[in-house]
Every structure is written in C-alpha cells, then in structure tokens.
C-alpha cells in the first residue's frame, strides 16, 4: 500500500524501516530512528553517499580517517554483513544491536569469538592470538619482550584450550568467557540506551506517526 504514497524524505541507500529493525533487535523504534541520525552523520563524513566506508568508520572511532587498526578492521568486516566493502544502515543497526545492554550474552560471546577468529576458520588459533597481542602492544605504551608475550599467550591457551588441541573452539571460548566475564565487557555499550537523547530525530518520528 505504501507504494502509492510518495514520501518527500530521501533516505540513504540500504535504508530499512525502523519498525522492521526494532522488531528484529533489542532497539525501540525511537532508538533506531536516533541511530539513523548517527548513521547519516558518520556516512557523510568523507563521501556523502549514505554508506559507511572504512575511512569514515576509522574517522568516527579515532578522529583520524587514515589510522589503521587490526581490531577496527575486524569490527568493520563483521558489520559489513553483505561483504561489499561498506556498511549499510540495516547492517549498522543489526550489528550494533549485539552491543545493546539488553542483547543476549550468547550473542555477545559469539560476536567476540568471530572478532578474534581472524582468519575465519571457526577456531581462535595460537598464532592469531599472538598476532592480536602484538597489534595491541603496537598501539599502546606497553612494551613487552617476545618472551613475555609468549608466556602470556601460552598461559591463556592453557586456560582456554581445554582439550589441548592447540586452538580455541566456540564451546571452549564460551566456557572461558563464563569464567572471565570481563572479556566481553566491551561488548556492551551503555550509550545505546541513551541514543535518543544524543540524537533526537523529530522529523523521522513524525513520519512514523503519520503512517499509523
């Protein structure tokens, strides 16, 4: 029915109705509308094409569009569900929904596993873990010798790789996170419940009311 009604508001490519996204995620319709305001801001920061490119994502995270970071790359790749090099609005909302305080812990654990499974093999391997520790050291002021890094990685593997096959599988990861819940602390963003205050979007909200 909506096909006969021509809206004057122009949406970005890949726009999806807030009511649809709210039904699929822990977000309310108002929160999705506010996220659209944030999405528009980020996606217009370098190329105004209504899609978030990697440099726009880096700019939003680091205030520097050229700053590369292994973990930001991983987050971007996971948000880019269609794997076409850009983040569309629906992808942005569905991915951020994992970080909602009301999202299920299981979803956060799975997302973190995929994040750390750098080569998408279905396992976190020792080599990947060492690569991530070195990437973290590279961006921080911590200066640890290779021996210390090896010791930390070995100890972590002894604790997490319960069956001792040299890689952490999803079930081992889940058990490890249950014992160390701080590992997924960064998978919850309290900001997401305040987003309507930070990005009020009166225009879009009135549009939803009009259609009801």
């Amino acid at each position: 029915m909506g096909c006969f009604y021509s809206k004057t508001t122009k949406h970005t490519p890949g726009y999806e109705e807030p009511s649809v996204l709210a039904a699929e995620t822990p977000f309310t319709v108002s929160e999705v509308e506010a996220l659209y305001e944030l999405f528009k801001k980020i996606s217009a920061s370098v190329n105004n094409d209504g899609l978030i490119h990697k440099e726009e994502f880096q700019l939003a995270l680091f205030q520097n569009k050229d700053r590369r970071n292994l973990f930001a790359d991983r987050i971007f790749d996971l948000f880019d569900i269609k794997r076409n090099g850009v983040i569309e609005f629906g992808e942005f909302v569905r991915s951020l929904s994992v970080f909602h305080p009301n999202a299920q812990t299981a979803a956060k654990i799975t997302f973190a596993f995929r994040l750390y499974d750098l080569r998408n093999t279905g396992f976190i391997e020792r080599e990947e873990l060492k690569e991530m520790v070195l990437a973290l050291l590279n961006e921080s002021e911590l200066d640890l010798s290779d021996d210390v890094v090896e010791t930390i990685v070995d100890k972590t593997f002894r604790d997490a790789d319960v069956n001792g096959d040299g890689r952490i599988d999803p079930e081992e990861w889940k058990e490890f996170v249950m014992k160390n819940p701080s590992l997924i602390k960064n998978m919850t963003l309290p900001y997401l419940t305040d987003i309507t205050l930070a990005f009020p979007s009166f225009v879009v909200r009135s549009e939803v009311e009009d259609s009801e």
Binding site: L38, I42, A60, L61, F62, Q63, N69, L70, F71, A72, D73, R74, I75, L96, F99, L115, Y116, L129, K130, M132, V133, A135, L136, E139, S140, L142, L144, V148, T151, I152, V153, K155, T156, D159, A160, F176, N180, S182, L183, K185, N186, L189, Y191, I195, A198
Partner: peptide, 26 residues
C-alpha cells in the same frame, strides 16, 4: 595489573579499535 598476570584476551580488549563508544562522541 601486571601484564604477566593477565590473560591475552584481557590485554586485547583494551584496544581502542574495540572501544565503539567513540562512535557516539560528538
């Protein structure tokens, strides 16, 4: 916490690249 006492994932979770709260800063 002394780094040796930490597990590797705790260290990694400190990365700025994993701190998405920066997306919401104006």
């Amino acid at each position: 916490t002394a780094p040796l006492a930490m597990n590797a994932f705790e260290l990694i979770s400190r990365s700025q690249g994993l701190n998405l709260s920066s997306l919401f800063e104006k």
